[in-house]
């Protein structure tokens, strides 16, 4: 049996305020390859903290987090950054596309901090854009794209470099229902191609499309 992509055990996260805030409390989670998981919960429930821990943007106070079998909680800042760059593709609610740089340039950005060769980078980026159905917009600046197209460009950027995990933070939060459907259809396709997807959302429409749902309430995670 292959290693799970994500394996959380007893994850706690406390913020050193006065009094201390416990954002995550003894979180256990296992995400297998090609899983499509939705994490739902109201605002303030610890969703964002869990996303930061999963995305290696923040370290838990205690517990164990294995990504592709690599124990991450003991890693230093540099090693964690490298692991994040190579294994996790991020999709943000606000897209985070660089303005006045073309869509393909924005996509290519995903590769510059890794060790990948510069040779064929543009072709790989164009292939990723084709994969999300945005090949015809490669030379456009993000300002001239619709919201859905922008999010698809951001997904193409996240897919470049073949990450183990697509980590999406409210990916449809800024989209209308038609664009939301398009992005969710894309997630279904990617999952069929074997991509592991974790979506954090508070929208039922999004979470219902996922294969698995977990709910977080006051830092406690429960399967639904």
């Amino acid at each position: 049996m292959p290693e799970p992509v994500i394996e959380l055990e007893g994850i706690c996260k406390e913020f050193p305020t006065d009094p201390p805030v416990r954002a995550l409390s003894d979180v256990r989670l296992r995400v297998e390859r090609s899983d499509y998981l939705a994490i739902v919960g109201p605002s303030g429930s610890g969703k964002s903290t869990l996303l930061n821990v999963l995305g290696l943007l923040d370290v838990p106070t205690s517990g164990s987090y294995r990504l592709d079998g690599v124990e991450t909680t003991a890693l230093g800042d540099g090693a964690r950054t490298r692991l994040r760059g190579s294994r996790i593709g991020f999709v943000f609610q606000s897209f985070h596309l660089l303005s006045r740089r073309t869509v393909v340039e924005n996509t290519m950005l995903a590769e510059i901090y890794g060790g990948q060769s510069r040779r064929g980078r543009r072709e790989r980026a164009l292939a990723a854009l084709d994969r999300v159905g945005l090949g015809h917009r490669a030379g456009f600046p993000p300002e001239r794209l619709s919201g859905g197209e922008r999010q698809r460009a951001a997904i193409a950027r996240a897919l470049l470099g073949e990450p183990s995990l697509l980590l999406c933070d409210e990916p449809t939060g800024n989209l209308d229902s038609r664009n939301t459907d398009a992005v969710l259809d894309l997630f279904d396709e990617l999952r069929e191609q074997g991509m592991t997807i974790v979506v954090i959302t508070h929208e039922n429409e999004v979470s219902e499309r996922a294969v698995r749902r977990v709910r977080i309430t006051d830092g406690v995670l429960a399967e639904e």
Binding site: G55, L57, D77, G78, T81, R82, R84, G85, S86, I88, F90, F92, S94, H96, L98, L109, A110, I112, Y113, G114, R157
Partner: peptide, 16 residues
Amino acid sequence: TGEIGLRRALGAARRH
């Protein structure tokens, strides 16, 4: 700031 965060998420180290 957002761009810096994005670059860090994409694997940029502090020195980058």
